[in-house]
Design a protein around this nucleic acid. Structure first.
Length: 467
RNA sequence: GGCGCCAUAGCCAAGCGGCAAGGCACGGGUUUGCAAAACCCUGAUCGUCGGUUCGAAUCCGACUGGCGCCUCCA
């Protein structure tokens, strides 16, 4: 088993040993969202996958600078704001606030920095000017376009040939490209649109340039990891490469390109036109955020994940089992050790890390979590516990935390207030049970269940939890 | 048309040449006053057809089915 971390690089289409540009430090940039609508589970999948990757890099000892942008200016935002009759800034700020809340529900760490396109205009303009100056871009009627043919290596990430791209490329009405392959760096504003002053026109940046500019501004001219959904490989990331490498002249912009597989809904893409969008909001409101995280981690990040409601339910059941295993032992453990159990814990932990080092194989890592849960629960039914069981429990907690799986069971505010009364009912019910008045005792249990409180009689006493 | 991806038990999903992880569901048990929870037991030769190899789910080829990108998209 090697200590070496390996990462699949979209550029080389191979798993490569991970080496950072600067020892001990990782600079990573993950493309964020365009904030014009609520986030859906596809965004959630990507965010969770990269959060787990980021957490593991940190666990491995790297100092990680993690940047994730918000695209807060584009046509969709302008149109949506107009529909709602509000200022685009109001729309984007509200979406960003919602995004932040949802991300925290999934236990996703805050990015080190969340750059926003509208707050990076000077850097964007400077980069566009530089590209014009060195012959990779040109202004036309107030727009500025990137000259794709000026960049010899165009297509190296998505492995496309310029000849192949020609068939799909076209010049839309109102564009002033010299070549159908070219893409906009700056767009002159139409009447009524938000604008920023520039040497070429009052207008706004194109989509791709913001990421190049923000990367350079916040992370440096070359970064270690650049990530995003597989749908961004072309054209977005291809264009970023063209921009950044032409501007700085370095042999590479990002060392490792990582892309998550896209989430599938019953075998088909989730899309607005099919009307099958599942929003993160729904998951969070149903209290299934952590189950969703487990569902995502149960599949490898590069594979397409088939999402189903049943799958989420299955993940919830699995999560409950992990939670039961991680919950405190009912009595203090003895000082004895069980060498067999100790060895098992050690082996399982090693398997966990070996999997994570192998291109972040979270499904295998998660499987090792369940191995631990099984041995802990197997011992849980006993009246006493040796220290090895407690060690296993703490190991389980440690490993789940590395994956960002929160096994604590937060009680709702309302239930906290009700706790003394619930305890009272349980106490009365136990008196009834002692008196063998099971009909009444069962009635208490059933009625509490209807109110969302589940009762379990264990050999150490009766416990309850909100369901 | 071009570039890719996927196809493993009822469902989800690992596996990267050496006798098929894990989760969920189902069924049988242990435990329980009954439940619940937990634990134990139980299931697949890996889309099809060829090839390479001592040996393939794993490599190569063909085929079939599904999906993505090539226009906005995590």
């Amino acid at each position: 088993m090697s200590e070496q971390l390996s990462i699949y690089n979209t550029m080389s289409r191979q798993v490569e040993p991970f080496e950072t540009i600067e020892p001990g430090k990782v600079r990573m940039y993950v493309c964020g969202v365009t904030v014009y609508d609520h986030a859906h589970i596809g965004h959630g999948m990507s965010s969770i996958a990269f959060d787990a990757i980021r957490r593991y890099l940190q666990y491995a000892g790297y100092e990680v600078t993690y940047a994730q942008n918000f695209t807060d200016i584009d046509d969709k935002i302008i149109n949506r704001a107009a529909e709602l009759g509000i200022d685009p800034n109001e729309l984007t700020q509200s979406m960003i606030d919602t995004w932040d809340d949802e991300m925290s529900a999934f236990n996703i760490l805050k990015a080190t920095i969340n750059p926003r396109a509208t707050q990076e205009i000077p850097q964007i303009i400077a980069m566009i000017q530089g590209l014009i100056d060195n012959g990779h871009a040109y202004a036309a009627n107030g727009d500025v376009y990137y000259k794709v043919r000026s960049f010899d290596e165009y297509g190296k990430l998505s492995h496309r040939d310029i000849q192949d791209l020609l068939s799909g490329a076209r010049i839309a009405v109102g564009e002033h490209k010299d070549d159908p392959l070219d893409f906009a760096l700056w767009k002159a504003a139409k009447p009524g649109e938000p604008t920023w002053a520039s040497p070429w026109s009052d207008g706004r940046p194109g989509w791709h340039i913001e990421c190049s500019a923000m990367c350079a501004h916040h992370l440096g001219e070359q970064i270690d990891i650049h990530g995003g959904g597989a749908d961004l490989i072309f054209p977005h990331h291809e264009n970023e490469i063209a921009q950044s490498e032409a501007f700085f002249g370095h042999p590479y912009f990002a060392r490792y390109w990582m892309h998550n597989g896209l989430l599938q809904l019953g075998g088909e893409k989730m899309s607005k036109s099919l009307g099958n969008i599942v929003r993160l909001k729904e998951i969070v409101e149903n209290g299934k955020a952590m189950a969703f995280r487990l569902q995502v981690l149960g599949s490898h990040y590069r594979m397409p994940l088939t999402w189903t409601e049943e799958g989420l339910e299955a993940a919830q059941n699995g999560l409950d089992r992990l939670r039961a295993a991680a919950s405190p032992l009912p009595v203090s453990p003895t000082a004895d050790r069980d060498s067999e159990l100790d060895a098992l814990v050690e082996t399982t932990e090693a398997a966990f890390h070996a999997a994570m080092r192998n291109d972040f194989d979270t499904p295998v890592a998660v499987a090792s979590l369940f191995e631990l849960a099984r041995v802990i629960n197997r011992n849980r039914g006993q009246d006493s516990f040796n220290a090895s069981v407690e060690t296993a429990r703490w190991k389980l907690i440690e490993l789940t935390e590395i994956l960002g799986l929160d096994l604590s069971t937060p009680q709702g505010e309302a239930l906290n207030d009700a706790a003394p009364f619930i305890d009272l009912l349980i106490s009365l019910r136990n008196d009834l049970r002692a008196a063998r008045q099971f009909d009444l005792a069962d009635k208490v249990r059933d009625n509490l269940a209807e109110l969302g409180v589940t009762i379990e009689d264990t050999r150490q006493g009766t416990i309850w939890k909100s369901s």
